[in-house]
Structure formats: structure tokens, C-alpha cells
Simulated assay, not measured.
Amino acid sequence: MADASPILLELNQLTKSYGSGKVALDGFDIAVRKGEFVSVIGSSGAGKSTMLRCINHLIEPTSGTIVFDGKDTTKVRGRELRRMRRRISMVFQNYNLVYRATAIENVLQGRLGYKSAIAGALGLYTEDEKRRAFEMLDHVGLADFAYTRTDQLSGGQKQRVGIARALVQDPLLILADEPIASLDPKSSRTVLELLRGAADKFGITCLVSLHQVEFAQEFSDRIVGLADGRAVFDGAPDALTSSIVSEIYGGDSEEGEQ
């Protein structure tokens, strides 16, 4: 990923406060380039999930600005929001799959943002979309499980279905919220290799929240350390010293992350 790549995502002084008085984000800034793989690390309650969910408006920020693909998307609504979300995929810690549906049916849901409400409800997909969904399942190593219900898959396989769904959406940006938190080390590595490959092979920007510092150092172009809603580190993986890690994780919040 070249340093000269244009900026895809920029958050400026982003804040999020809840009615309880808890401040989840406190003037957070970040600029992420096209094709860059950025890991965000920090303890539970540091603001990682809140930050990711503000980007695609699953959570509305209290103040600050969000610029995505050259457009201020801070206050987008309705059709504009739907159009923006087409190009921002999300990979969830808990997979967020329809378990009674097959793997291929779950992957095709990545195309819903391009459908009318009626076509989406009826599951009307083009032959090209179906072919692309199979290609993405094959890409994540699950072609043989295309017609398997996802409740019959392992955790690592479920997350790979989630990644295939994210890729078939044709995104510019993938947001991955603790994508390996529930997985064993082997499955975790496979998932991160697939996300890293999305950046390297497809030029997709990846913004990934992680607890595992070693994986963040291995797979990232850049690491951002969050503590109490603020960035306390933003730099290359080899610049992340043990003392900085201690600073990032030193003030564990008693509350779970919002």
C-alpha cells in the first residue's frame, strides 16, 4: 500500500456521549488511505466499537465530522445513507448471519443495498450476482459449503461467510469489529489473512478493531491505540513499544464497550 494513496476516510474531532454521561469517543481523529490495513487496539470500553459504528451510522456521533470517499457523510440520511452503506461492509464479532439460511444465501445478502425493497424481500438476484457470490465463497475456502446452513458451520467458517458477504458487496471500506474475538488461533489467522488479502488483492481499505496486539503488529500497515476514547498512539507496527502498549491498556474501563 503506497503512502501516496488518496485518503478514503477521515474522522475529525469525533465525539460520542451517552445519556448516562459516559464519553465513548473524546475528540477522535484518524485519516485512512485507500488500500490501507489499519488495526485499532485498546481495552474494552476504549471506544473501538463506537468509532466503527459511527462511520456507517449504526451509532450517530454527538459531534465532529466523517468524510468518506471525498464526501462529508456526517449527517447523511435516507437514500444518501443507503448509497454510502453500499460501499462500506461490516464484519461482526458475532457473525450477524441468518442461521436458518445457507452460506450462499447469507453471502448474497451483501447485495441487498443494491436492490429495491421488493427484489430484496423476494431474494431476486441476477445470475452475475449469484456467480460472484460463489466466487467469494470459493475465495474464502467454503465453496463446498455453499448449500450448508450456517448454523452447522464452525465459528471460523461462519466468520469466513461474513467476509465473503462483505466482499460481494463491492466495498471501498471494510469495518471489522473484533472479528477474531471468539475464534481459536488457527481460525483467527485465517480470518486476518483474508482481510489482509482484501487490502492487498482488491485494494479495499480495512479498519479492524483487535485485542490481540501480536496479530495487529503482524498484519497491519498501521496501528491506532485507543484509551478512554482518545488516540494515544498512531504509527507503524514496529513503533509500538511495550511501554506504549502499557499506556493503551493501562486504564481498563469497568464498563463494557458501548
Rank of each mutant, 00 (worst) to 15 (best):
L210D: 02
M51I: 03
E135R: 12
G155I: 06
L194Y: 04
G47C: 09
H57A: 15
F134D: 03
S246G: 12
P61C: 01
V32I: 00
A31P: 05
S188R: 10
R189K: 15
S253T: 11
I223Q: 10
E257S: 12
L175S: 13
L8A: 05
V98L: 15
L137T: 05
Q93Y: 04
G162V: 02
H57W: 13
V208P: 03
F215C: 00
K34W: 01
Q169H: 14
R149I: 06
S253M: 11
L25E: 08
E247W: 05
S253K: 07
I174Q: 02
L11V: 00
A239L: 10
I180Q: 10
S89Y: 12
A117W: 15
R86K: 05
G45R: 01
T50S: 12
A143T: 08
S243I: 13
D184K: 01
P179S: 05
M90L: 05
D234K: 00
D170P: 04
R33P: 02
K34Q: 07
I30P: 01
S187Q: 15
S20G: 15
D234V: 03
L8R: 09
P237A: 08
G21E: 04
Q157C: 06
L112N: 11
V38M: 00
I59H: 15
G235M: 05
V208C: 11
L97R: 12
S39R: 03
H139S: 11
K34A: 04
S43A: 07
A198K: 02
H57P: 15
T148E: 12
M84K: 11
T205S: 09
F145P: 07
D72M: 01
G156I: 01
R111G: 09
E178Y: 04
T15I: 00
R82T: 08
V140T: 03
S187P: 07
A4T: 03
A236H: 11
A133R: 09
E127V: 12
A231V: 05
S20N: 15
A199H: 06
I88G: 02
E105N: 08
G156Q: 03
D138L: 01
S242I: 11
I66C: 03
E193Q: 12
R87E: 14
G19F: 13
V40T: 04
A181N: 02
E193A: 13
H139W: 08
T62A: 10
R100H: 13
G155T: 04
D200H: 04
P237L: 11
I30A: 14
T126D: 13
D184E: 14
K130Y: 13
K115Y: 13
R53K: 15
A133G: 09
L210R: 03
A146Y: 06
G235V: 00
S5P: 07
A227R: 14
D200K: 10
I163K: 09
V245I: 14
G251R: 13
F134K: 05
V208M: 02
G235Q: 10
S209C: 04
I59C: 14
D72F: 01
R196N: 04
F219S: 05
Y95P: 13
V161Q: 09
T190C: 10
A2T: 12
K130W: 09
L108Y: 12
